[in-house]
Simulated assay, not measured.
Amino acid sequence: MRKDELLRALEGVLEKKTFAAQDAAPATPAAVLAIIHYGDSKPCVLLTKRRENLKMHRGEISFPGGRFTQSDLTLMHTALRETEEEIGLAFGPGDVAGALQPVRTMTSNHFIVPFVTVQDRLPKLRIAQDEVAGVLDAPLIETLGTMEPDREHFRFSKTAVRFKFESNVIWGATARILKQLHEVLIRPS
């Protein structure tokens, strides 16, 4: 899928909104940045593996991002700040194509706004070793094609899904964000 095709497909679902922390009430406001890039002429998505010693969501696969702080103007600024802190990529508001629908975590009561950027190439990453155990550069379309029901983590939910990349299982809020991309890029209506 070419970059122009991908952007055209996303155009109808991405909101051009920066989101205020109050939009998350009463949950904890948070934001992530889904970084889609074309390093090898096909779209890839950058994911992080969280360190095992973190308080919450340890060892999970996620998008770069985190909680809103008072210094952030909007949740978009949260996603941009956290991305720079975690993997050393500095994007500005003009680099953001828009936001997918917010998702909530099932266990930690976070309201997460997933922002999306689509880039031709990425500069060298600077990984924050205290937060990030590693970075996964997954082929987007192939990874979206691995979607399956997630009965391991959510035995009682018929709508929970998970994805796989190499030996990694992507589940929870990250999977719900990827599912939105799946609906647009794999199963367009």
Rank of each mutant, 00 (worst) to 15 (best):
I61C: 09
I61W: 04
S62M: 15
R67Y: 11
F68N: 09
M76K: 07
T78S: 11
T78G: 07
R81S: 03
E82I: 08
T83S: 10
T83M: 05
E84H: 15
E85Y: 14
E86F: 12
A90P: 10
G92M: 07
A97R: 15
A99V: 13
L100M: 08
L100T: 10
L100C: 11
P102R: 14
P102I: 13
P102N: 14
S108Q: 15
N109H: 15
N109G: 11
N109D: 15
H110T: 14
V113C: 06
P114N: 10
F115M: 11
F115G: 04
V116P: 03
V116S: 02
V116C: 05
T117G: 04
Q119S: 10
L125K: 14
R126E: 15
I127E: 12
D130G: 12
A133F: 06
G134C: 07
L144E: 02
L144Q: 02
G145V: 01
G145W: 04
T146D: 06
E148M: 03
P149G: 06
D150Q: 08
R151K: 12
R151S: 08
E152C: 09
H153M: 13
F154K: 08
V161H: 09
F163K: 03
K164F: 03
E166I: 00
S167L: 00
V169R: 07
W171A: 14
A173D: 09
A175K: 03
L178D: 10
L178Y: 01
H182Q: 03
E183G: 02
